[in-house]
Design a protein around this nucleic acid. Structure first.
Lengths: 184, 184
DNA sequence: ACAATACAGTCGTTATATTGTATATAAAGG
DNA sequence: CCTTTATATACAATATAACGACTGTATTGT
């Protein structure tokens, strides 16, 4: 996940050069010092929102043209490159595949649970939904007082704004895909 | 034009309350101190883009939900309330009616030019277009080496990224509407 | 009514964004 | 080659964003 100030840096520099403006000219148009403009373009500063506002208004450009980062056509995520999170003494392993970005509404994880592995999730924010699919092994999901036993190929969807838990009730490793969706 | 940090303040506070979160909880979710969250909500601080980023990500909300200000259904602008700009010894008077906002692509002015009044505009940024309509009197517009004489009811559109000038060649006051459009 | 807790706000300190001035670098003209 | 000009960066001073620890005020529970 690229740093936001670097995105801003690239956008601003590209915009300025496309308009063929000097730092000084931009400073004059926006009321932000030439020094600051330069630092922002080099990613050396994380400007305040008022500064960004001045820049957007002075240059007559939209706010989003400054913070949008051109999402690459293709993104490849190699399992070996993922920084995992583990719980239950390493028996519950989380692979963040496509983390949340402010312009998406969901994020994707892959989970591996060893036999007997357990995880209890606190309730997520209001409205959040979870979509699970089992790709290997067996999983028991508990919500409220209900309990669901899922096997390879099975899926489940539920509102995750209440506490819930996962338990590998099989004898082998369980692997599943988890999508978290934030409707709000 | 409302201050951007006040817009942010309202949005954040409304969002937090709609999720029924305390300042402390938001601090925990976002990694931004409780104090700062509070100050932002009260409009006492103009956060940096990295903190806004942390907030958007931590709360799983879009960037724009923080900076969008619900544009009121209706806006009335009374001529008597407008802060005018004048040039040519007050013979060229500008009324900014609907100034630029980062989420629009144009702005609207009304211009009054006394008989003989003159104004020379430097070239605006690349691609900018101007749309004029005469509502009273007569106006001569000069672009490059061309010259256009417009009378009551006439209109003109031109690329304003070159120097151009306006001259009231009539004997009475000229009033016109000017729209500046920024396609980029 | 009292204690316990959760919550929001204040205060002092530190980190850093922002500015104005000064310096470096490169391109252009004579 | 040496100026001149335009442009980008480096530096020092100030303003302010950001944090952690503390205080005040509701709210809850028994």
């Amino acid at each position: 996940m690229e740093e936001i100030n670097l995105i801003l840096a690239k956008n601003l520099k590209a915009l300025r050069e496309s308009k063929k403006l000097s730092l000084e000219k931009v400073a004059e148009l926006t009321g932000v010092s030439k020094t600051m403009i330069g630092q922002i373009e080099r990613g050396e500063s994380s400007p305040t929102i008022t500064t960004i506002w001045k820049i957007a208004n002075g240059l007559k450009i939209s706010f989003s043209s400054l913070i949008d980062h051109p999402r690459p056509e293709t993104t490849v995520v190699l399992k070996s490159d993922i920084q995992t999170l583990s719980e239950d003494n390493g028996k519950y392993l989380v692979y963040p595949l496509f983390p949340f970005e402010a312009d998406k509404r969901f994020e994707v994880y892959s989970i591996e649970i060893e036999a007997g592995g357990f995880h209890r999730a606190d309730s997520h924010q209001e409205g959040t939904e979870e979509f699970l699919t089992i790709f290997e092994g067996e999983l028991t999901v508990r919500l409220n007082d209900d309990q669901y036993i899922l096997k390879n190929g099975d899926s489940i969807r539920f509102k995750a704004d209440k506490p819930h838990s996962y338990l590998n009730t099989g004898k082998t490793l369980t692997r599943l895909s988890m999508i978290l969706y934030y409707p709000n």
